[in-house]
Structure formats: structure tokens, C-alpha cells
Nucleic acid binder design. Structure first.
Lengths: 174, 174
DNA sequence: CGATCTATCTATAACTC
DNA sequence: TGAGTTATAGATAGATC
């Protein structure tokens, strides 16, 4: 009978740790990457923010997201503002005794900064290898079509021209 | 009376378009940025993925997120795989009549690729200007403290060492 | 595989303090 | 301003096709 079939157990709570089963991991990745990009899009539209994102999947697929229209414009305004920050800093200097406490945190921050710089260096290497062209040249026509479908879906979701790109490379081992 | 007070109307449906009121926009940005970073973290942990993300807020604050431990490792394995893609492509070439249809899409894809490359160039400029150091030097001690708190919160949420960084600059006009 | 469904879980808009 | 609350919208785990 139809109503004898258990329709669905629904969305069970899951622990945030690496999913063991590779197939489940891949499915979850696909769903959550989609969700992440959608959230990023919404943030951009709702709050007039700018997001650039690079995601490497467990199976070494590469996904990129960006609404980068005018990063340089934002950069310029940021550079203009930095001159004013100095005034604010000198105000903070009046309470000198708090500095020592914060100095440790500052040191810790600098260490993380080193890691971040290392990350960005990696991104630069990625750029220099010209993988944008390499990868699209090596994409199969089918994959390219799928890629365009993804873009069009996202476009219609946002109901506006959007600079979003999704690249998928074939799984050769599954 | 207490039960006369309307507790909350809850989460109303909202249209995805720029929020007019600046204060609301800022609040929504803060909440949703937090949510976006959390989602990115979960994706990394659950699926063993790698995410690097840069967010510019409407008020020109800068937020970064990354789990970049070994991007170069992933890059290497990616470069190794690309040689095999050519075999797959030659298989697709057997059905030649489908190519013309897809060529338009290919052209369109290349155009978007140009935009993406422009974006990455902007990121490179950002890198060359050494804003990592510039900005932390210009951060007030208070902001730096807040930054460290954010990192520690995220660390405890993930319950593991994590390469995540959040930078906030003072609002001078509010 | 990918698409769909559905019950749940999670994120969050509006509100309060 | 920032931190909590609540109810609802939205995301998604597991199942099915």
C-alpha cells in the first residue's frame, strides 16, 4: 500500500566532522556548495557587499564565485580612508596601560597574518599558472554545457546579470 | 501583563534586493556574514574541502575567511589530472553535429572567463599593495581585540585549529 | 549520477533589552 | 550597539526514483 511506504525521515541532525563515506561526502558537498554560493549571492544583493570565493572540493574539483565588478573602486576608497585611521589610533594611545595586554593578541594576530599571506601567495601561483584558460580548454563539451546551465540558473535566481562562474572537471575515478 | 506582550513576529519572508535602510543593512550584513563563514567552515569540515573567501562590506570593511593549509598540494594533483582530460575530450568529438550548438555557449563562457580574470587581476593588485600589513598597522587596538575574539569564537565553534581571519576597520561616519 | 520529495534542522528578520 | 528571543523562512539529510 502507498501509505505503508515511509516517505522520508527528514533532515536529521548531523555532527560536523568529516563524512566517512565518499559518495555521501560528494553529495553533501554538491548540495552545500550550492547553498553557500546562494548565501553569498544574497549577501551581495541585500547588503551591497562584494564576495570573491574559491572552493576546492574533496575530489579536486574547482569552484569559483565572485561579484567583483569594482573591487578596485572599493580598494581606492579603502586606501583613502586609511589616512584617517591614524587619528583614531592616537586617541587609543592615551590609555597606555592597556597596551601590554593587547600586545600578546597583536603578536598572535601577526602570526595568523603570516598564514594568510602564505595563502594569498598560493592564490597568486594559481593565477600565474593560467589555469583559467588551461582548464576551460580541457573541459569536455558536456561539462561546459553543464557549467553554462549552472550560470543561467544562478542568473535567473538573482534576476540580474551576475559574475558567477562554476567550473567542474570530470571525475575520472568513479 | 507579560503574555500581552507580542514576543516576536519571527522570521518574515524578505525579497532579495538591496536593503534601503543603512542600519538594517549593516545588521543583516553582520548576521549573514557570520552565517556564511559558518557554512563555509562546515563545508570544509564535512567534505574535506578548501575555501578561501574575501568579503567587502557595504561600509568598506574587509573580512577574510580561509582554510588554505595546502592549496598547493591540491593544485599539484589538479595539474596532474589535466593530462587525462584530453582523452575524454576526444571521445566527445565523435558526435560532431552537436558542436555548433555548444560553440555559442563556449563563446559566452570565454567572455565570463575574461571577467573572472579581471577579478583575479584585481585581487593581485590588492596583494601587491601589501594591504595585509597596511591594514593591521592601521587597526586600532580595540578593533584588533575584537578581531581576535572573532577568531577565537570560530575556533571554539570548529573545535579545531583553524586558519580564519576577520578584520574590521572603524566606522568613521556613524 | 542527478532530480525530487519531505521531515527536520538551521538561519535569521523583527523585536526586545 | 550589541546580545538575546521567537517564530518563521530556508537549507538539507536521507530516501526514492
Amino acid at each position: 500500500m502507498d501509505n505503508q511506504r515511509k516517505k522520508s525521515v527528514g533532515h536529521k541532525k548531523i555532527e560536523i566532522k568529516k563524512i566517512d563515506k565518499a559518495s555521501n561526502r560528494q553529495v553533501t558537498f554538491s548540495k552545500r556548495r550550492q547553498g553557500l554560493f546562494k548565501k553569498a549571492s544574497e549577501l551581495c544583493v541585500l547588503c551591497d557587499a562584494h564576495v570573491a570565493m574559491v572552493v576546492f572540493s574533496p575530489s579536486d574539483k574547482l569552484f569559483c564565485f565572485g561579484k567583483p565588478n569594482n573591487i578596485d573602486t572599493i580598494l581606492n576608497s579603502y586606501l583613502n580612508e586609511t589616512t584617517e585611521f591614524e587619528d583614531v589610533n592616537s586617541l587609543d594611545n592615551s590609555s597606555t596601560y592597556e597596551h601590554e595586554e593587547y600586545n600578546r593578541q597583536y603578536e598572535e594576530a601577526l602570526k595568523m597574518l603570516e598564514l594568510e599571506k602564505k595563502k594569498l601567495a598560493d592564490v597568486k601561483i594559481l593565477n600565474k599558472s593560467d589555469w583559467w584558460n588551461d582548464s576551460i580548454d580541457d573541459m569536455s563539451i558536456e561539462e561546459l554545457q553543464q557549467f553554462m546551465v549552472s550560470i543561467k540558473e544562478l542568473r535567473s535566481n538573482l534576476d540580474q546579470p551576475m559574475l558567477c562562474r562554476t567550473m567542474e572537471f570530470l571525475d575520472l575515478d568513479e
